[in-house]
Write a protein that binds this DNA or RNA. Structure first.
Lengths: 235, 235
DNA sequence: GGATCTTGGTTGTATATACAAGTTTTTCGG
DNA sequence: CCGAAAAACTTGTATATACAACCAAGATCC
């Protein structure tokens, strides 16, 4: 591995482990250069690239600092549904309907790179804003990447949040559909009459491959997707 | 302006003007260094940053080349609907229902930074795959940025494609909703019975501000959104 | 003719150096 | 003690240089 890459790796470990918390100062170019016995330009490159990736921010004359973690997923801001509810002034609550291990259906096997009928984790959760159900979340999780998934308390932490802590996501694939909800979905979302629903199919990836496949279904009248998807473009 | 930034500006102009087409070779580090009377490292920096922005691609031992333009909007790959239809093996067709100038409604004025009742361009188009209507597109366009909008032939070129040529987009804001279509929409989309529709509200920005506000409505049974939204993340 | 070798050009990595520009800390003068 | 000047330290830009890794095309040898 190239020297500048080693320095990046080292710094990433420090940040991910919490040794260097948010907004804390990281070693200067000269300090890194000395620690790793490289030239300042090489140390600079590591700092530079981490800055471009949004992991650090730098100020001329002052120093380099660890950026806020949330800004790392800034490009596609799929806000945590709990945060979203709470920031709108309502109480967030989750009801866990199911949390189990089951044999992997074909589609899920393909999506997660598993074999058919191999064990896969499955969770089924309803997200509420006050007493109003906002979203039905059905999620399949790759046990190889997240072996302790079934032991979590998802009344306390959303799967999305838990997963992004365990297996920091590097990529996500999304499909948005407008669907007609089935009876079970209507029941869980307290829809007396069926109405158009948004279904977001989300496949997330971590460094080592596919992590989870989630189907997020929300009534069109209660939820909107996106908000803003900024995509950073040149200029 | 810093020297490396001047070189970047120069190269961007060449690419945007079409002087350097897609996949064509751009000057090497040494050539740029000589042309601009800078060191190779400075020329390299310009090439490097353009590569990180997805505007160029480089291969060791071979050279640097202009990336495909579409990949510039790769982060959120809203594919041109015409391309999408054609790549699925069907014939794309568009029907222009309306192309006019009208006084700006309040919502549109806010979105585009205009004054209420100031003139704004408006187009209404149905996109077809073979004979099947896929999408109803209602679009408001900022006349200050695209003064010739009403003189285009949108049977030939989609508004999205035209706009991205006239005012290269730098940012886009999206909201996805599941809605119940109104009568007019049903009629235009040939929906005998109303069915859940996806409505994508898209606001696009160019260097000089908001360009257009579009409402794209598609029957849930005929269209899916997204495909894949990759968001580049650290590591 | 065909396989191999050489050569020149390209990008990739790394170093040493210099100066500019900005901020913070220290020093010194009053 | 206070304020200004100076020093020290930080990041930002730029240069010159060296070598490595890679590729394509031409030359050479068999």
């Amino acid at each position: 591995m190239a020297k500048f890459a080693e320095i990046k790796e080292f710094m990433l470990r420090q940040i991910e482990s919490g040794a260097w918390p948010e907004h804390s100062r990281v070693p200067s170019e000269n300090e890194l250069a000395e620690q790793f016995s490289v030239s300042r330009m090489t140390a600079r490159r590591a700092l530079q690239e981490l800055t471009e990736q949004g992991i650090l921010y730098r100020t001329q004359g002052v120093g380099s600092f660890v950026a806020a973690l949330k800004s790392q997923s800034s490009l596609l801001e799929i806000r945590n549904i709990a945060d979203e509810v709470q920031s709108s002034g309502h109480a967030y609550r989750a009801k866990l309907l199911q949390l189990t291990e089951l044999p992997c259906p074909t589609i899920v096997a393909t999506a997660l790179g598993l074999k058919r009928n191999e064990p896969v984790f499955f969770s089924l959760i309803v997200h509420y804003s006050d007493a109003l159900p906002l979203q039905l979340e059905a999620r399949y999780v790759n046990p190889k990447q997240v072996p302790l998934y079934t032991q979590q308390d998802f009344q306390e932490i959303t799967p999305h949040l838990y997963l992004s802590q365990i297996a920091p996501l590097t990529e996500a694939e999304h499909i948005v559909e407008a669907i007609w909800p089935d009876d079970f979905t209507c029941q869980q979302l307290l829809l007396k009459k069926p109405e158009p629903c948004l279904r977001l199919t989300r496949r997330t990836f971590s460094r080592d491959g596919a992590v989870s496949l989630a189907y997020l279904t929300s009534p069109g009248s209660r939820y909107r997707l996106g908000g803003h998807l900024n995509f950073a473009l040149p200029r």
